[in-house]
Design a protein around this nucleic acid. Structure first.
Lengths: 216, 216
DNA sequence: CCATGGGCTAAACGGTCGTTTAGTCTCTTG
DNA sequence: CAAGAGACTAAACGACCGTTTAGCCCATGG
């Protein structure tokens, strides 16, 4: 027998196995994981990682592209009608995409091109969902749809990332549990403010609008 | 003359100069800066850093304590009545505390004890301010003051940290500018949602309350 | 049959890191 | 003045990093 390919799917190319192992390692331990750790997780020598990808940075770029492509794939083939909240929850609660979710979280922590791209897509998606909600009468109209979508995306995603950082610092975070915890903890204030508002009158908003109209 | 102590305040102990330089370096470049970089910034040999603090980790702990103590000091002696939004803005817009703000931001990115402590304090402060607003009639009452304070703090701070990560990745971030940019960009949707709400009716909130009452 | 070339590994290279060591300088104290 | 202690430095140590090198194995194709 000529069996090799210890862990992961043995049918995959070694290059693909390294990439997949890198996604898992980056997601679990952050982008500071050593090439040696990734190589070990892929059942491969450190040299082969460089042989296939050229450098660690290029490997991360390949992981970014693969994750972005997979998300695209899932999004186009999967459900397109979210019934509540952001679309993060859809991914985060699905076990099969746990690795992707972890990777995306680390990207949001670390910044970089993938994080910017995914964030911009999320904002665009939120804006579309909001517009659909407006048309259906379930969401109030706004004076600036783009600004509202940006703010809501940054707030919900930022809060999630921050709470993961503060409450689940180490590696091997179960993001499904974190999202559930986050939902149960924040559902009440979110719904309250979103239906009843936070201010009892419109003096603050009126003052802002007057100031803005006066400035232009 | 026996002058040494090149940069920073020459009156300070070398230990204090190292600590201050470390706060600046950690804040500007993140916690991965080398001991050698910190030593150079303090005008000192790398060995002396270890001689005074024992280890890099202990140095960071000392920075954490110093930053927390300074914030305490500023908070007790300074203004106690915030007229708008979170208290972060007070710090962030003050030039003299730019180093502290940068350090706190890096802590929020990286997690750790200081981040948790400061975050918990912020939540407590927000809850106090909200209660005062309720008493004054400028803030709507809530069914769960703690949950609302936690959610608002996590949302605003998380959004801020996330946008800094995405839009100003490198070192030497001018947080005063970032906070200003953030305010002008998000003021409208924030005021809109806070005064008018996001949902035109209370079906979602009613459903949640009914579900919760049914469960208990 | 041998030659070629790519997947793959073991080992080493150069660099940076945190830390240690050995020793110098200076100031204090008896 | 002598002795000692602590501030401080230059140099080195050992560990780990990303990457390179040299070579093995094996399938392919003439």
């Amino acid at each position: 027998m000529s069996s090799a390919t210890p862990p992961g799917n043995p049918d995959l190319t070694a290059r693909a196995r390294i990439r997949d192992a890198a996604v898992v390692c980056f997601g679990n331990r952050g982008f500071d994981v050593s090439v040696r750790t990734i190589a070990e997780a892929a059942g491969v020598s450190p040299g082969l990682v460089i042989h296939h990808f050229g450098s660690k940075e290029a490997l991360r770029k390949a992981c970014d592209d693969h994750v972005a492509a997979t998300i695209d794939e899932v999004k186009t083939e999967g459900v397109t009608a979210p019934d509540s909240g952001t679309l993060i929850e859809q991914f985060a609660t699905a076990e099969e995409y746990a690795h992707l979710v972890a990777y995306v979280f680390r990207s949001m922590q670390a910044g970089g091109d993938l994080a910017r791209t995914l964030f911009d897509r999320m904002v665009a998606d939120v804006e579309r969902y909001m517009a659909a909600g407006e048309a259906a009468g379930t969401i109030r109209p706004t004076r600036d749809p783009k600004a509202r979508a940006l703010w809501m995306t940054a707030s919900s995603l930022g809060a999630l990332v921050l709470l993961v950082n503060l409450r689940h610092p180490g590696p091997d975070v179960d993001f499904r549990e974190v999202v559930r915890e986050w939902q149960t903890e924040h559902a009440l204030p979110v719904l309250e403010v979103y239906t009843e508002g936070l201010f009892p009158d419109s003096t603050a908003l009126d003052a802002y609008l007057a100031h803005k109209d006066g400035a232009t």
